[in-house]
Design a protein around this nucleic acid. Structure first.
Lengths: 267, 267
DNA sequence: TAAATAGTGTCTTTGAGACACTATTTC
DNA sequence: GAAATAGTGTCTCAAAGACACTATTTA
């Protein structure tokens, strides 16, 4: 016990090295056929007026919360949705990575645990917390380069290292669609195969061959299961009514559904 | 500026919510044809006498260090090797994940950022820091279940949630060998294809077909490049002298080298 | 009727894996 | 010589992708 007290005296962050821990969320959804990310506009310095990923400090000791719970709480606060009901329930949430470079927050040492969320279409967010605005933003409007930096001239500049975090989240999302059935997390509970294809096309930024995609999805065990019903025809421009499917019970796609034409990115 | 001071007053971890940040390292290597992980025996409570992943507190403000630097520093301290020279230089290091469940450390709220390291054979470690022993340990001796728990009767019990962290690291390593050339990170600068196959067999725990593996490795662009030289024959039991290769310039394997027979793990 | 789309048929090419085989080395 | 191993040849089967085609719906 004396050992333990010595240890605590040497390392308690109150006495020694104050590090703050935050969570940030890369929340992705599909709106109007395009991939969107949830951003908030910062009301206060640093980076006041710039856009940022929703996030905030983890409740460490008082009301101590687990990291995924903190991510859901911050997301709920920013979107104005209640945690524990509706669309936030069907959302997929996974840890993306932790960003702790000294100096990434000018105020103090902050370690940020980033989460990645895939959601079906959610309502327009209501700004809350430290934000004076919140909006779903098309990722193409952010001018993200592969290196995680924003091209000059982009209107919505991202605070902190959030351009890097977002770029990592997008690459993770693109990869996950290859070997998991998580594209269904962007869809309502029942969806058609053309809708599922639209998810792939929005995330990958590439058109896919409709016929081959259809056959491939049905050939992967557990990807989707039929409902026996047919979609209504709202918002369509012609053609037969597609069948409706639900997500299947597979956790991995085998064989995977690989992105076409990636030979350049390999070296 | 008043805004910023208010913000700091509300959130500075010294006044508010003390959270400590550590790094832990899952350092893997191949010894005697088997996959080993570096473990240290804890000299002090909590979990005194149990084995743990090497790690420690991140230097947050005084001598603030980036997270990967902290991982290398902790690894160097525990192995007795100098950071910045020799085998630790060729090592592959990547972030594995962050573990922050309340109660995972009985003393206080600790968020641990785990790193995963692949190293060529390293010397026997020398215990340092808070450890009274350090050893490369065959992962098969730890009785890890798929759920990240240790089977009853295992002699080396792991402290904290390190069984979970290690299980996650092993699964990451197995997956990475499928679609990246990182198996070469376990090899010396020049290696033979049978040696590379032994890496795959140790990490996957499965025998591979020598002939098909050979052809596959040579057919993936940029996986390995020939040196034009031939291995000496030390420690071998017969057969022709295999050719020597170096790691190529590919960062991804295309097509990937998939694990055989995973159909069961998909649901 | 024209255009768009869902869904299927089929052919080609690539790649994974099984099996066989030769050549080279150790014991 | 026997056993082990490096490396290659070849065959089969699965799957990806290109292309064609039919059926069904909207405008």
């Amino acid at each position: 016990m004396a050992d333990e007290r010595d240890f605590l005296a040497g390392y308690d962050p109150r006495d020694y090295d104050p590090v703050a821990v935050t969570v940030d969320v890369v929340a992705l959804t599909i709106r109007d056929g395009a991939l969107h990310v949830l951003l908030v506009r910062r009301a206060h310095p640093p980076f006041a007026g710039m856009w940022a990923l929703p996030g905030g400090f983890v409740r460490g000791v008082r009301d101590a919360e687990d990291l995924p719970d903190a991510a859901v709480r911050e997301l709920a606060e920013e979107t104005g949705l209640e945690a524990g009901d509706g669309p936030l329930e069907r959302m997929h949430l996974e840890q993306l990575g932790t960003y702790g470079r000294p100096g990434r927050d000018p105020r103090m040492r902050v370690i940020s645990v980033a989460y990645l969320a895939f959601a079906p279409e959610l309502p327009e967010p209501k700004a809350g917390g430290d934000a004076d605005d919140a909006a779903w933003t098309p990722v193409t409007a952010l001018g993200l380069g592969a290196s995680g930096e924003q091209r000059p001239g982009t209107t919505r500049k991202l605070a902190f290292d959030h351009a890097r975090v977002l770029a990592d989240g997008l690459e993770r999302a693109r990869a996950k669609l290859e070997y998991t059935p998580l594209a269904t997390a962007f869809c309502p509970p029942e969806f058609t195969i053309p809708e599922l294809r639209a998810v792939y096309e929005a995330v990958w930024g590439e058109e896919l061959h409709a016929g081959n995609f259809h056959r491939k999805v049905l050939s992967v065990p557990g990807f989707v299961e039929g409902t026996g019903t047919t979609s209504d025809r709202i918002g369509r421009r012609g053609g037969p009514r597609p069948k409706l499917y639900r997500a299947g019970d597979a956790r991995l796609l085998h064989p995977a559904l690989l992105r076409p034409g990636r030979e350049e990115e390999i070296r």
